[in-house]
């Protein structure tokens, strides 16, 4: 009984956290970035300071911890096949490619996006030039994760729905 429930619960947590993480990634790229550009270009408008002060810290909290929970639940799901997946062995090639993409994305979140966003948010001291550079780096890492999410989701899905399409 436990052997059937545990993978289901792990998969459930993987989906819930993954939707939180990737949903916020798409929010940043499809909504917030263009909204901030429009707000900054709107002379006499309210500007984007409210988004930076009130929305961004909360979104980044769920974003970065959603990434961690997604990865941990995914690793638990792989279980004894963890090494086979990451070394792209036999039938684990598809999930392995998805797992590698997800891992690179997690490292991007914690290694590039979050450290640079801390400068943008003023949680880490930075002058205006450093903030501008941090904003650009965080933006490019976020766009890279959006790019990587496209094959990542295909390979995650293909590992259990469509493996027969691959030779």
């Amino acid at each position: 009984m436990e052997q059937e429930w545990l993978p289901l619960i792990e998969r459930w947590i993987h989906f819930l956290a993954g939707i939180t993480w990737i949903g916020l990634l798409y929010y940043f790229n499809l909504v917030q970035v263009p909204a901030m550009a429009a707000a900054n270009a709107d002379q006499g408008g309210p500007g984007g300071a409210g988004i930076t002060k009130y929305v961004l810290p909360r979104a980044l909290f769920w974003f970065r911890w959603g990434a961690v929970v997604t990865w941990l639940a995914g690793a638990a799901l792989l279980g004894k096949h963890f090494v086979d997946a990451f070394t792209l062995q036999g039938q684990h090639v598809l999930i392995g490619i998805g797992a590698w993409l997800g891992t690179i994305m997690l490292l991007n979140v914690w290694g590039i996006i979050w450290p640079n966003q801390k400068k943008v948010l003023g949680l880490k001291p930075a002058d205006d030039a450093e903030k501008a550079k941090a904003r650009r780096l965080a933006f490019l890492a976020s766009r890279t994760n959006t790019l990587l999410s496209i094959p990542m989701l295909l390979f995650m899905a293909a590992s259990s729905h469509g493996a027969g399409l691959f030779s």
């Binding site: 790229n29 499809l30 792209l88 036999g90 039938q91 090639v93 598809l94 490619i97 490019l140 766009r143 890279t144 959006t146 790019l147 990587l148 999410s149 496209i150 094959p151 295909l154 390979f155 691959f166 030779s167």
Partner: peptide, 30 residues
């Protein structure tokens, strides 16, 4: 040359190209 990551369309097209490359890699490995 413009960075494709500066636009949503460029990002999506790059993602689709990478998907095609990785499908070829998966087929070669399986």
């Amino acid at each position: 040359m413009k960075n494709p990551l500066d636009s949503i369309a460029g990002t999506i097209i790059s993602g689709l190209v990478l998907t095609a490359v990785l499908i070829a890699l998966a087929n070669a490995l399986m």
